[in-house]
Simulated assay, not measured.
Amino acid sequence: MSVDLLTAPRLSRQTWKFTSDVRIQSSATAVGPKEAQGPLKDTFDKTYDDMYAGRDSWEAAEQRLMEDAISIAIAKAGLTADQVDLIMAGDLLNQNITATFSAESIGIPLMGMYGACSTSMLTLANAAALVNAGYANCIVAACSSHNATAERQYRYPTEYGGQKPPSAQWTVTGAGAAVVGQGGAGPRITYATMGKVVDMGVKDPFDMGTAMAPAAVSTLLAHFRDSGRTPQDYDLIVTGDLAAIGYPIAKAMLAKEGYDMDRVYNDCGLMVYSPDQDVFAGASGCASSAVVTYGYIMEQMSLRKLQKVLVCATGALLSPVSYQQGKSIPCIAHAVALEGGI
């Protein structure tokens, strides 16, 4: 049986085309003090001037950031919590505890999801799929990270004061959330390309950019192949958090495959902070792509300055256990296409 790929919802085993009018109804972001001093400071909904966000631990602060992002996004959509069918959320802490405790506090059913720093687009893609299929009317996709909680879990506690190499990245303290539903005037979610796990043998947890770049390229190539699109079909293509090390690697790999990314390509890890903020190679963490997408990109699309955007969030799937056992770092990337206009 032949399938018309122009109308089929499944273009390949990696790429979905959403056939109904699935849109981002609203989005919101909440960030910490360093992010609030960066170049995107005016695009965030809520900012805190201390890393604790008024709570008694960094983990509790991260929960507050996620609760803020979710609650503000729901309110901006003109909804109440009982009108939301599901939260699809994840974070970097063991067993997704930020998402768990946030969903408990807000009182909405939860589907916890983990994709490391690719979680922003992992949750958005799956939320769009469930809404497109009619299993839900309204879903919140969300994720968070916190510099101090991530450092304590994956590398060295902040108090240790260990020296970091230039290839290290600064985990974003923040959270982002999007309300996904049918119709409205927000950006349409048109495609999602789910990534394959790519492991190039990198073992250095202070060099995430080198580890993740091949996974980003793998997903982007799959998206272009399956959708029939090229980079020039987009006004902006962003990867999640390759930063200063991984960004040129990905760009060179794509050029070798015949894709000119010069006009349209940027990386969220290079957008959150300014060069004078002492963040080593740039931003990382679940919130890196989330706060850029649900803040800056949504703003630019609402102003019609951007019409078509492809967000390819990248994630390093290591854990403290795998690192301690000497394993290399498997990586993944998930991409979602957004299109403005009614």
Rank of each mutant, 00 (worst) to 15 (best):
A36L: 05
R23N: 09
L40H: 03
D42G: 02
D42C: 05
I24D: 10
S27T: 14
K34D: 15
T29I: 04
F44V: 01
Q37R: 15
E35P: 03
Y52A: 12
K46T: 07
L40W: 02
S27H: 05
E35T: 14
Q25G: 13
Q37Y: 10
V31C: 12
G54E: 03
S27V: 09
V31R: 04
G32Q: 03
F44P: 02
A28G: 11
G32R: 00
D42R: 14
A36G: 05
K41L: 10
Y52R: 04
T29Y: 07
P39S: 00
E35N: 07
S26V: 12
Q25F: 10
Q37H: 10
Q25V: 14
K41M: 13
G38I: 12
L40C: 09
K46N: 08
K46M: 08
M51T: 15
A28W: 01
P39K: 02
T29K: 11
K41G: 06
S26L: 08
K34Y: 13
I24Q: 12
D42M: 08
P33C: 07
A28I: 01
K41R: 15
A28F: 02
M51H: 09
Q37V: 09
D50P: 06
G38E: 00
K41D: 08
K41Q: 14
Y52D: 09
A36D: 03
F44Q: 00
T47V: 07
A28R: 12
Y52C: 00
K41E: 12
Q25K: 13
G54D: 05
Y48R: 02
G54S: 04
S26H: 10
R23T: 08
L40F: 07
A53K: 14
P33W: 09
G38A: 00
